[in-house]
Write a protein that binds this DNA or RNA. Sequence first.
DNA 1: TTTCTAATTTGCAACCATTGCTAATTAGCA
DNA 2: TGCTAATTAGCAATGGTTGCAAATTAGAAA
Lengths: 140, 140
Amino acid sequence: MRSPEELTTAFRAAGLKVTPQRQLLFRLMHNNSAHPTADSLFAVASQQMPGISLRTVYQTLTDLTEMGELQAIEVGAGAMRFDPNVSDHHHAVCEVCGAVQDVYVNEAPELRGLDGFAVADAHIVYRGRCASCSAPAKRR
Amino acid sequence: MRSPEELTTAFRAAGLKVTPQRQLLFRLMHNNSAHPTADSLFAVASQQMPGISLRTVYQTLTDLTEMGELQAIEVGAGAMRFDPNVSDHHHAVCEVCGAVQDVYVNEAPELRGLDGFAVADAHIVYRGRCASCSAPAKRR
DNA sequence: TTTCTAATTTGCAACCATTGCTAATTAGCA
DNA sequence: TGCTAATTAGCAATGGTTGCAAATTAGAAA
């Protein structure tokens, strides 16, 4: 996803308005590698802008996704996750803490069983334990 | 998933009852490659057993999944799909008709970016057009 | 075969993530 | 500064799924 400044220009150029709500969300998503859900982003946004509505968060995330600035991913954890990294990559989901991290593969695997199916896109979801959840328990 | 007969034995052995509802669902899921949702299975089941409840369909699918007889898959199409093929495989989802088919890969791809993550499982979802949806339009 | 009881089924309410709708507000051009 | 289309907020509604409680029933035991 582009920077808040670039998005501001892009939105205006597309005839869309740049509201304080949108600017806040641009900032919160930029370089955000937490793969937040709409709801968790709403929680953070609410601290900085009390009164912002969950509806607006959903709306803006959808708009950004349709503009290709965000990737919406489904990792089988109920809610949709939003990722400002729109490069070709995959995801690893920790089964303990739920954290999602970006993963890259060197080349797509060879397939068997496709039978005339024209693949447009492939997405891999890895499940397991992230580094901190597989580390031996430390005192805290 | 095992045959209805084997499941009957397995259920009894586990102290579970084999009801007519369960027997019907065993039969409907056995060798079922349609990757049905709970709701579509309920529709089929209702024809053969009017009055069966959607709740029971969910319950039985969940039980079978927990017993390892079914695989529950999430292909990003709203509802969960259930697959009696519990071997190690992946899925191809047609973006036109929504059909899901099983796909096998020769070997898992090499990963970058994992950073201490211990992978337990990987699932690939391919999107594209299935054979019949990419075929040139025929009169019907 | 009958009895008994824990397992199961049903129906419905509740839940969660998300979207539809609409009145009120506002960005930003003229 | 005014105007108007875009946006926001709030709430209702949706779809998929689960929780709950009362009624029913499979199947072991008598």
